[in-house]
Simulated scan of single mutants.
Amino acid sequence: MREALFTTRITEMLGIRHPILCGGLGPAIADADYVAAVVNAGGMGFIVAAGFPDPDAFREQLTRCRLLTGGKGFGVNLYISRQAGGAQRLERHLQILIEAGVKCVETAGASPEPVLPMLRDAGVKVLHKVPAVRYAHTAARLGVDGVIVVGNDCGGHPGIYGISSMVQAAQATAELSLPIVIAGGIGTGRQLAASLAMGADAILMGSRMLVAKELAIHDAYKKQVVRGDGTESIVVKTGLKDHHRVLVNDSAKAVAALDASGSSEFEQYRAHVMGALATQAYRSGDSRQGMLDYGPAVVFADAIKPVESIFDEMIDDARNALTRLGQLTRQLKNDHD
């Protein structure tokens, strides 16, 4: 377990050792065991509320995570949906997480404005995830505590603009004064150091963590990720303007064909994008079906390892990057003397 190397507004806000956050990855994957492993390794993880629609099951996950972390703070991912029934499910999750003493949420999807008063009154810190800096400005005006800016390299939903994480990091930190987390294509300590150097307060990883030992997916799929070189993803659902970067499989190819045909009717997509297909794939290890979030950062996922080992390697890598910068700076000084 590595000691703290960096202190940022995010590490201080969340009470964590390292400025490393781990995204939800998908329903029922980021459960109590995985999130607790992230927290115990010094980062912040988020139980995906949508993965536990049953209130009792969600409450049990929060209780288990509290037990596994020894009472340390952990997060919950809240997807704000515009679909029928979404508001009611969200309200139930809000009530349960507040009762459980959760102190941090990652909101995504639609605007967090409807949930902010309730979360603010309960003292819950809100990090809102956006796919472009233009949306981060709106979230900042609403009064969120920080924003997670996601670049085009992310597995999952990169938004419709296709802007890289490198550009977003430099733009966001120049234009916004609140804490910034950078996500998308990140899986090394060198990238962590670079993000902080550009003014960010933390990074968030998703695809890199698909090989975490504690993650609740089949080892056969984790081994497939280890074999991957980062070129196996495709952005689909462009016809719905709900861009989704996923593993190239039978479902993704079918959806890409619908996109190419100009289809914009969700019912034509439904059979290929149902969440149950992804859940089955993660549990069985058969990845031929389902929208499986998958980004090029899998190239850094070289083996199935405990979260703590992944974090330790990242911090060592970040320290080496700082050493190299120090050497370059000294060389520059010597050249001018």
Rank of each mutant, 00 (worst) to 15 (best):
P112R: 07
F52D: 03
I180Q: 11
L196Y: 14
A170V: 15
G199Q: 12
D153R: 14
A169H: 01
I182L: 09
D259C: 04
R324Y: 00
G155I: 05
N249T: 08
K333M: 07
P158T: 06
Q191T: 03
V39E: 07
Q88T: 10
A216L: 00
I182V: 12
R64L: 14
R190S: 11
A220Q: 05
R59E: 12
M1V: 11
D317N: 09
I47W: 00
A41T: 11
R319W: 00
M291P: 01
H137S: 09
S165R: 06
G295Q: 07
P112L: 09
G15N: 09
A303T: 07
Y221C: 00
Q224G: 15
T138N: 04
I20D: 07
G109L: 10
S261H: 09
L292Q: 07
V255W: 00
G45Q: 06
G15Q: 06
E308I: 15
M166I: 15
V48N: 03
T323F: 00
R2D: 06
L127E: 04
H336A: 11
N40C: 15
V246K: 02
A252F: 11
D219A: 05
D250K: 14
G71Y: 08
F266N: 01
V167L: 13
L142Y: 10
Q61I: 03
L258C: 03
M13V: 11
A256Q: 14
V133C: 08
K333H: 08
S207H: 08
I186N: 04
Q95D: 15
L119N: 02
D54K: 00
V115Y: 01
G143C: 12
P114Q: 07
M1H: 11
A108H: 01
G275L: 01
V307K: 01
D312Q: 12
K305I: 07
V133W: 01
A169N: 09
A220T: 14
D201G: 10
R120L: 03
A57S: 00
R134E: 12
L240H: 01
V76E: 05
L21E: 09
A84F: 06
D302Y: 06
N334F: 07
V115I: 12
D259I: 02
